[in-house]
């Protein structure tokens, strides 16, 4: 990179930062729904990392509708991985929200630091 050297590692550091604060949010959360939001921040760090790996300077998107095939394009495999990742993230978030709702219906509490493990029937 002719410009600043930290620009070469920017997406990896941004992804690590997002993951770190996501985990911090999960650890210090006092509301289950807030915890699930912080988990989605962790997931977005993986999107950034994957797309950053595939990016090529001066290249266009890997869609050859307007440009003939052979023009420089970024990596399409990474974008396919991130597409799958987004759908998986949405499904996991939905399931976690359902579980949070059921926990509240059963225990009346929604604070992860005050909940005790649920005991089965004796």
């Amino acid at each position: 990179m002719t410009s600043l050297p930290w620009l070469a590692a920017l997406p990896w550091l941004a992804a690590a930062w997002l993951f770190a604060i996501g985990v911090y949010g999960v650890v210090t959360s006092r509301h289950y729904v807030h915890l699930i939001g912080c988990l989605s921040v962790c997931q977005s760090s993986t999107y950034m990392l994957l797309l950053g790996v595939g990016f090529r300077r001066g290249a266009g998107p890997p869609i050859f509708y307007d440009h003939p095939p052979g023009t420089p394009a970024v990596d399409p495999v990474m974008q396919a991985l991130v597409l799958t990742d987004i759908v998986v993230g949405a499904a996991v978030t939905a399931l976690l929200l359902v579980i949070a709702l059921q926990v509240h219906k059963r225990c009346g509490l929604v604070d992860p630091q005050r909940l005790r493990p649920l005991r089965g029937p004796k």
Partner: peptide
């Protein structure tokens, strides 16, 4: 917006 700037319109 980040994904669009990273040349990923599908995403």
């Amino acid at each position: 917006v980040v994904f669009f700037l990273l040349r990923a319109p599908d995403v």
